[in-house]
């Protein structure tokens, strides 16, 4: 009996302990959401606090986003287009490399693997200056292509697809070959469907990277209508606080879609992250 009680007490203590990181994690986002309901002048004067002032609450900031804050929608659209294209292209190219590294033995295989690891080590920040000059030369400054191009190879994704492909049934390859299927047909028609969970997991992670990416879009994008959400929002962070209405409600709308996706696809998020840690 007392042992049972002890166990229960332990559980309660653990729950209470874990409540601390839980509150630290969730509270700021809740506070931001509540703040987005208040007039921006209020925020400027008092900063972010948690006093519930129901009489001040309204959706004014959001209607402003939909009506006068039009540029916000450009940013939203740009972020979606850039995330979509860089994710899809990165998935295609990375899965091809990962797949061939796992399923074939060929001359230079070791070198390719080494190059993948090398890319992981090189900080992107160092490539920035020559890449920027290259974008000027390619006339890709201030275009979607300029942001997307360097992002279509992702070493972590290649690694992930290699690990995942190692588990594919190689016998299927042989029997498909006998049936006259080409190597590319094997990949597209037989292996691709088997790789679906891998595409799901990596797709979500790459889309998140791209959605939140900051430094490279900051360098490449110039005009106000071409900016992505993080860059646009960062520009609103002035010391004068005159943009707080768009800034706060805009920030909430930036995070919200991702949190919704996360709630439904939690398993995929966690899986794709785990792949990096175990094989790292």
């Amino acid at each position: 009996m007392s042992r049972q009680k002890q166990k229960k007490l332990g559980t309660i203590l653990l729950l209470l302990f874990m409540l601390i990181p839980l509150i630290i994690a969730v509270f700021p986002l809740l506070a931001l959401t509540l703040a987005s309901l208040k007039p921006s002048t209020e925020l400027m004067r008092y900063g972010l606090n948690i006093k519930p002032q129901f009489e001040l609450w309204s959706l004014d900031n959001y209607t402003y986003l939909f009506t006068e804050g039009r540029v916000y929608f450009h940013w939203f659209k740009n972020s979606i287009i850039i995330s979509l294209f860089s994710t899809v292209l990165a998935l295609i190219f990375s899965s091809m490399v990962g797949y061939s590294l796992a399923m074939y033995r060929f001359r230079g295989q070791g070198i390719v693997m080494f190059l993948v690891l090398l890319i992981m080590m090189i900080p992107f920040e160092i490539l920035m200056l020559p890449l920027f000059r290259m974008m000027i030369w390619l006339k890709a400054v201030d275009t979607y292509a300029g942001v997307i191009l360097p992002m279509i190879i992702h070493p972590l994704a290649i690694f992930f697809f290699r690990q995942y492909s190692l588990g594919l049934p190689k016998e299927l390859m042989d029997s498909a070959r006998i049936d006259g299927c080409t190597e590319y047909g094997i990949f597209l028609r037989i292996m691709l469907p088997l790789l679906k969970p891998a595409y799901g997991a990596m797709g979500i992670l790459l889309a998140l990277f791209s959605w939140n990416n900051f430094l490279w879009p900051l360098v490449v994008l110039r005009t106000k209508e071409m900016l992505t959400l993080p860059i646009g929002l960062a520009g609103l962070l002035t010391p004068y606080g005159n943009n707080y209405d768009v800034l706060i409600s805009g920030s909430v709308l930036t995070v919200l879609p991702i949190i919704i996706v996360f709630i439904f696809a939690q398993k995929y998020f966690i899986e794709s992250l785990s792949a990096g840690a175990v094989k790292g």
Partner: peptide, 12 residues
């Protein structure tokens, strides 16, 4: 819940 902050960008 503890994972949720990782979904936000540094800017937000």
């Amino acid at each position: 819940c503890i994972f949720i902050p990782s979904l936000t960008s540094t800017i937000v």
